[in-house]
């Protein structure tokens, strides 16, 4: 995952534009729209539309199933009727009382929040420096950061376990904060570097000529302009840490110290799976991240495809 200020598709566009220039002169374009969406395509478009609806519904179906099951009365789980006779909101209360879900939620919020903070504190200065200076080893630094992203903690699990055993931080959410912070640094550094690079240094200089201090210029000019990037980095990190499962599974073994993802998994380990509780917990785990993600989706895409999409 990376970002860039360089427009990667420039050569392609350039090559494609030449025939446009060559042929565009003689012919009058006429109704410009007709090339893409004339009336003779409408029949086709209708079919495509129907297809899109069907596919979208299939993809949403798991969530419908999850929501309905979460609200299904316990004794109706095996009955034939698809629509439950009533919505059992008490399932949410029950799962809260009977399991460690409340603690798990607290751990998830804490871990995701703190690792996001850690990422921000570390990546903001690094990204600003990388964007503004062409220093020796700049490429190596960006590369190293990228490599940490590629590896992700899963292949390093044994090493991480050993490290936190030595540090006596097993079974502590601090371990999760540190690991999630470290392995999500790359996305932030890259996307923030791209945003900072796009802000002309002249803007900062102008503010300083007008009497602002260096930090004042940063605070009043640069940071506000980079805000979309910062928000994206924050939300992306939060979601990644919130969704993380493997490291938490290995490093934290006490049920009430585990984050939601691992807590939900323990419902499966039981002798008989209580699906309605499992999905009540799942809804709690999903809703916040989907809402947050909807907010930053556009920026994430441009960030993930290394500046190829602009």
């Amino acid at each position: 995952m990376s970002t860039s200020t360089a427009a990667g598709r420039k050569p392609g566009t350039g090559a494609a534009k030449q025939p446009a220039a060559a042929s565009g002169g003689g012919t009058s374009p006429g109704r410009g729209k007709s090339v893409l969406g004339g009336s003779k395509y409408s029949q086709k478009q209708l079919w495509f539309g129907a297809l899109a609806w069907v596919i979208a519904i299939v993809f949403v179906l798991p969530y419908v199933e999850m929501a309905i099951t979460a609200l299904r009365p316990k004794d109706e789980l095996t009955s034939d009727g698809y629509v439950p006779s009533k919505f059992e909101w008490a399932n949410f209360v029950d799962v809260w009382d009977k399991s460690t879900l409340g603690d798990n939620l607290k751990v998830s919020l804490l871990v995701a929040g703190m690792s996001t903070l850690l990422v921000l504190v570390v990546s903001l200065p690094a990204a600003y420096y990388t964007a503004r200076k062409r220093f020796r080893g700049r490429g190596v630094f960006l590369l190293l950061v990228l490599v940490t992203q590629m590896f992700q903690p899963t292949s390093l699990l044994v090493g991480l376990y050993r490290e936190f055993y030595i540090l006596d931080l097993l079974d502590s959410y601090w371990a999760l904060v540190l690991v999630n912070g470290a392995f999500n640094l790359a996305f932030s550094v890259w996307i923030l570097t791209a945003y900072f690079s796009a802000i002309p240094v002249e803007l900062e200089e102008a503010a300083m000529i007008d009497g602002a201090s260096r930090l004042g210029a940063l605070r009043r000019v640069t940071l506000p302009l980079a805000m979309p990037g910062i928000v994206t980095a924050v939300i992306f990190t939060f979601i990644a840490a919130w969704n993380e499962f493997t490291v938490a599974l290995v490093l934290v073994t006490t049920p009430d110290k585990q984050p939601l993802t691992v807590g939900i998994n323990s419902f499966l380990g039981a002798y008989r799976v209580e699906w309605q509780y499992l999905f009540a917990g799942s809804v709690v785990a999903i809703v916040p991240v989907v809402i947050l993600f909807a907010y930053i989706e556009k920026h994430v895409v441009s960030g993930l495809t290394a500046g190829s999409v602009k």
Binding site: A52, V60, Y63, F293
Partner: peptide, 28 residues
């Protein structure tokens, strides 16, 4: 190739699948 509404719905469905934890996706 599609109009606004099917496109929005499809994007919404994709969003839900993308953001959700692998854990809950697996269980459902």
């Amino acid at each position: 190739r599609v109009g606004k509404w099917p496109r929005l719905l499809l994007l919404f469905a994709a969003l839900g699948a993308w953001a959700a934890p692998a854990m809950t996706g697996s269980t459902v």
